[in-house]
Amino acid sequence: MSWQADKKMDIVIGHMLRTGVTIAAVVVLTGWMLMVTRVTGPAPGYHHFHGVPAPVLKIAPVLDGVRQLQSASIIQLGILLLVLTPIFRVVFCVFGFAAQRDPLYVTVSAVVLTILVYSLVRG
């Protein structure tokens, strides 16, 4: 029955999401610890909006920063991993419904995936 297939899919997705969040949280925590221990002087406070000097979405500069152990880049990498977890969930739905031979829901999942990818790439 499709209900059981759905539930099985749900459980796999649930574990996948939790693993993704755990990895992302560990990466963010690492970057944050580095940031807190390195910065001296008053905190930025974030009272006024400046935007981020280097756009987070450009993956190359983030990875460069991670290689140089820059704390902000490590946090940004963790955040990117986190944003990818729900997107993976939708990718998994596309394949799950394909395995159940449900063209309607393959299409619905693909539409959601397209919106997510459009948002991330187009920014």
Binding site: F49, G51, P55, V56, L57, L116, S119, L120, G123
Partner: peptide
């Protein structure tokens, strides 16, 4: 998130 990240 895409728009939020891009806008800083």
């Amino acid at each position: 998130a895409g728009l939020y990240l891009a806008r800083g």
